[in-house]
């Protein structure tokens, strides 16, 4: 019995992977299956789920209603997508120079600078977003500052309506996800062998060419990882838009949340989740096919 177990590689492999399989099953497969099943269901008048098979929720999300075409939900999806794209692009543009600066700093100072990047994450997420309300609202810090400057220059000043707005949501998202882009980009920049910069310089490349031909391509793994870490959460989040959008900027995340909690329509909420999931999956797949998983270059 024991002898045969020693020789049975397949059984050994299965047993070794079993704990992971169980975790995946309980944490991923079961909830997802439940969501898929619910998304094909209906709700009764009290908000209980009736398990049947209907595509009604999906049709409604795609805009087909009894009263005709309605792009309300498609609009929400597109708005979420657009916001996620904007956030990711801005975050890359802000994070790259910062990560570059940290990676090129003297070795002793790097840890301190990374520590500074991480400090905000010690404060609760909700509190940090509320802090932005204090900054951006009508009588907030930003308007007071601008007003002060305008007063000094004797320019008439009416406070801007920074908050609540879609712009405020974008600011909050960028702020929130900046560290998640800085860290992977820093890691891949820091891994670049210094003698590759010397080799580029030796082969007549000035700082500009070295940056575009050597630094950027070799740091792409970090950008790809950071993009996934930013884009995927941004597209599904609802807290930032809830607080900084003053409940007027509705994203897919808000839609799902409200269907479950306010509208008491879990089947519709589930269908929205699945659509979001498929959309994210498709984009991530396309993106990683296009730019690699981020490990290809490092692993050769």
């Amino acid at each position: 019995m024991i002898q045969s177990f020693r020789e049975n590689r397949r059984l050994q492999g299965f047993l070794l992977i079993l704990p992971t399989l169980l975790v995946m099953l309980v944490m991923l497969v079961l909830p997802l299956t439940l969501t898929v099943i619910t998304s094909f269901g209906q709700r009764d008048a009290d908000g209980n789920v009736i398990y049947t098979f209907t595509l009604e929720n999906y049709w409604r999300l795609l805009g087909f209603t009894e009263t005709g075409w309605d792009d309300l939900y498609l609009g929400i999806l597109m708005r979420s997508l657009w916001l996620a794209v904007q956030t990711t692009v801005i975050v890359i543009l802000m994070a790259y120079p910062l990560a570059y600066f940290i990676a090129r700093a003297p070795e002793k100072r790097r840890n301190f600078l990374l520590f500074l990047v991480l400090i905000p994450l010690w404060t609760n997420f909700i509190i940090r977003i509320y802090a932005w309300v204090m900054i951006l609202r009508g009588q907030g810090v930003l308007n007071s500052a601008l007003g002060g400057v305008a007063g000094l220059l004797s320019i008439p000043f009416t406070p801007f309506d920074f908050y609540p707005s879609q712009g405020a949501v974008l600011v909050g998202m960028v702020y929130e996800f900046l560290p998640f882009m800085i860290l992977p980009i820093y890691t891949s920049l820091e891994k670049i062998e210094p003698n590759l910069y010397e080799a580029a310089a030796d082969l007549y490349a000035n700082a500009f060419h070295t940056f575009w031909r050597v630094t950027v391509p070799l740091s792409m793994p970090g950008v790809v990882a950071g993009t996934i870490l930013t884009f995927v959460p941004v597209i599904g989040t609802f807290v930032v838009s809830d607080i900084l959008g003053g409940r007027q900027v509705i994203l897919v995340g808000n839609l799902v949340q409200r269907q479950f909690l306010d509208a008491r329509n879990p089947p519709f909420g589930s269908a929205a989740s699945i659509i979001l999931l498929l959309m994210t999956l498709a984009l991530t797949l396309y993106y990683t096919r296009r730019f690699g998983l981020g490990e290809e270059i490092a692993a050769g």
């Binding site: 062998e193 003698n195 010397e198 080799a199 580029a200 030796d202 000035n206 031909r213 070799l218």
Partner: peptide, 20 residues
């Protein structure tokens, strides 16, 4: 004069080939 303006080339100990 910076390295990229000098008419010399180097073969590095670790070769320093661009991996990408």
């Amino acid at each position: 004069t910076p390295p990229f303006q000098r008419p010399v080339n180097t073969v590095f100990q670790s070769y320093a080939l661009f991996p990408h």
